[in-house]
Amino acid sequence: MVAGASNDNAARLWHLKTGRIRLTLTGHVGKVYSARFNGDSTKVITGSHDRTIKVWDLQKGYCIRTIFSFSSCNDVVPLDDEGTTLVSGHLDNNLRFWDVRSGKDIKELTGIHLGQITSVSVSPDGAKVLTNSRDNTLKIVDLRTYDVEQTLQYAMFLFVSTFFPINLLM
């Protein structure tokens, strides 16, 4: 399956072999900016302009948790295979960590960017988070200390950020 976020306040899942929509996830009241599978693809996590993060059970086909995120959510990524811990990047320039079971925030990092965080990625080993911002920087955050480990900067806006296994870069 493929998950897609949409400007019509929904997320959709397509079956790759047939090309047909398998499921439409409705419930957000703002544009959906992010849709990600958890590790075993039993759930989809969505982030929206409506300042919520939703967790969708794909077997049941409905939302099992809504998290109020205080700011428009531009991207959200599970930190573990089960999807019990999430990290999200926001319009207010902040990075937030969430416990899905309780719906509460674990940690909020403020001041690491001067512009909105547009995307978030987790390293393959789960030890670091890469953020991309409209301030023309990428930041690598160590998840043990929540400190910015490295800043990468360029003079124009970067559109995509992701971690690659280190052996692909050498």
Rank of each mutant, 00 (worst) to 15 (best):
M156W: 11
L23Q: 15
I45Y: 07
K139A: 10
D40V: 10
H113F: 11
Q116N: 06
H15G: 00
L130F: 11
Y154V: 12
G27P: 06
S123D: 09
G126K: 15
K17H: 13
H49A: 12
T118L: 13
A155M: 07
M156D: 07
T151Q: 10
D50Y: 10
H28D: 05
L109M: 14
S41I: 00
F163S: 01
N38G: 06
I53E: 08
L95R: 09
T162H: 05
F37V: 04
L16S: 10
V141W: 10
E149A: 10
S34P: 00
V76C: 04
S88K: 06
V100F: 12
C63Q: 05
D8E: 13
D8W: 13
F37T: 03
G126V: 07
C73D: 03
W98Q: 02
R22N: 04
I140F: 08
Q150C: 08
L95Y: 08
E149D: 07
N7P: 00
N9Q: 12
N9L: 06
D40G: 00
T66L: 02
M1K: 14
G39K: 05
E108P: 00
Y62N: 12
D125F: 06
I64S: 09
L114V: 03
H49I: 04
I64P: 00
N94Q: 14
R144D: 14
K139W: 03
L13P: 00
S161M: 04
F70M: 06
D8L: 09
W98A: 02
I21L: 11
L143K: 08
I21V: 15
S69I: 05
A35C: 04
